[in-house]
Write a protein that binds this DNA or RNA. Sequence first.
DNA 1: TAAACTCATATTGGATACAATTTATATATT
DNA 2: AATATATAAATTGTATCCAATATGAGTTTA
Lengths: 230, 230
Amino acid sequence: MKEDATQRNTQSPANGSGRHGEQALEILEALRADIIGGELTAGSLLRQQLLAERFGVSRMPIREALYRLEAEGFISFTPNKGAMVAPISAADLQEIYEMRVAAETLALRLAVPELTNAQIGRAEDLQIQMEEAPVAEFGSLNAAFHRTLLLPCARPRLLAHIENLENAADRYLRVTIATLDYAGKSHKEHRALLEACRRRDQNAAMDCLRQHIEEGGETMYRHLTENASK
Amino acid sequence: MKEDATQRNTQSPANGSGRHGEQALEILEALRADIIGGELTAGSLLRQQLLAERFGVSRMPIREALYRLEAEGFISFTPNKGAMVAPISAADLQEIYEMRVAAETLALRLAVPELTNAQIGRAEDLQIQMEEAPVAEFGSLNAAFHRTLLLPCARPRLLAHIENLENAADRYLRVTIATLDYAGKSHKEHRALLEACRRRDQNAAMDCLRQHIEEGGETMYRHLTENASK
DNA sequence: TAAACTCATATTGGATACAATTTATATATT
DNA sequence: AATATATAAATTGTATCCAATATGAGTTTA
C-alpha cells in the first residue's frame, strides 16, 4: 500500500525520548559534552545543517541549542557566518579559576553552618570512593564531592554560576591531563576540607577550598603553558 | 491595482537599523530593559505572537531573544507553556548582593594595580557629576563610575558576570526606590574608594567596595521587606 | 602573474506552515 | 448543581521555505 501523501512531518527524532519540547535540551547537553570532551575543538565551525542531520531533526532545535551554548560562553556567533567553538587560552583558564575561588568559597562559607552530619558523611564516602576509583570516574566523583558540600548554601544563582564555571574549567582539564599527578595532593586537601567542615569552621574550610582550587588551577596552568604544543 | 501575490516577505522590521542578524539583539535589550524597568512584572507571560507583532517581526527572532534572556536569569521557560518573567524575592536580592561583593571585589583587586591616573581622574569626574546630577541620571553615572574602576582588570568573563549581576540588581532598585536616602552615604563611600585607588591600596579599596555594595544591598533589602506591600 | 570582477554555491537569518500540547469553553452525566 | 467529558481555541515546538549574505571558483584585465 502506498504511503498517504498527507503524512508529511512524520520524521521522528533519532534519539529515544522525543517528548515534545525536550529535543533542544538534549542537543544542548550533547554539544556541550562534545566541547568539554574535546570532540569539538576550539575554532570548529558548527554547521547547522550537519548538526541537524546528525541529530535527526531540523535546524530549528539546533539553533535553539546554539543560542543557549553561546550564553554559557562555549561558542560565539559571527553574523551571517555562524557559530564557532570558543577559543581557549591560559588567560581564560586563569580567569576561570579566579572566579571559581571567589564563587566557591562564598558558597562554602554560606553552606558550612547548614551542613548536617549526614551530608558531611556522604562527602566523606565520596572521597573514600574517589581514592580507590579508576581515573575515568575521578571527574564525576570529584564533582559530586564538591556539590555535596556546596549545595546546602541554598543559593540557586550562585550554584548555577559555579556549575557553569566548572564546565568551563573541564574543557582545560581534558587538554592538560593534569588529573594524574595531581590526585595525591587533591585527596589530602579534600580530607583537610572535610575536617574543617566537621568542626563547622567557616574560615578554615574556605582557606582549604581556596588553596585546593588555586593549586588545581596552577597545575593546569603549568601544563597548558609548558606543553604549549597541543 | 491589486497587490501581486508574489511579494510575500515584504514585511520589514519596524525599528530602524534592520541589518541582517541584529534584530534579536535589539529585541533582547528592549525586553531586558522592560523587565528591569518594571514594565514587565514578575510572573508576566511573554506571548511570542504578541511580542512578534509589537516588534514587527516573526516569532523567530523573538525566541532567540527569549533563550538568551533565560540564560541571563530574567525569564524561565516551562515546556509547552511558554516564558514568564522570573519572580523577585528578598532571598534573591540578598543572593545577588552576596555575589556582587565576591565578584566586584575580585575585579577591583585585579584592577587596582593596573589603574592609570587618567582612569582614576575619569572616575573622579563622574563622581563629581553624580553629586550634582538629577536623580534620573544617578543610575547610569553610578554604573559608569564602577565600570571605570573595574574595567582595567581585563577579565572579560568576570566583567560580563558583574554586568549581569548589576542588571539583576537593577530590577530591585526600581522596586525599592532606595536611591534617594542612600545617595548621601554612597557619595562618601565613592570618595573613600577613589582615595584608596589613588594610593593603589588593594585591600583598602576592596574593603571600601565591599562595604559600599553590602550597605546598598542592605538598604534595598530593608525597603523590600518592610514595604512588603506590592 | 596578480588583482579585480562575475557568477555559482553554500550558509545563515527570518518568515511562514503545520503538528503537538495545553487551556478554555461548552456539553453531557450523575 | 457539581463533576466529568468532549470540543474548540490558543500557544508552543518543529519543519519547511525564502531572502540576504558570505565563500569560492573561474574569468577577465592590468
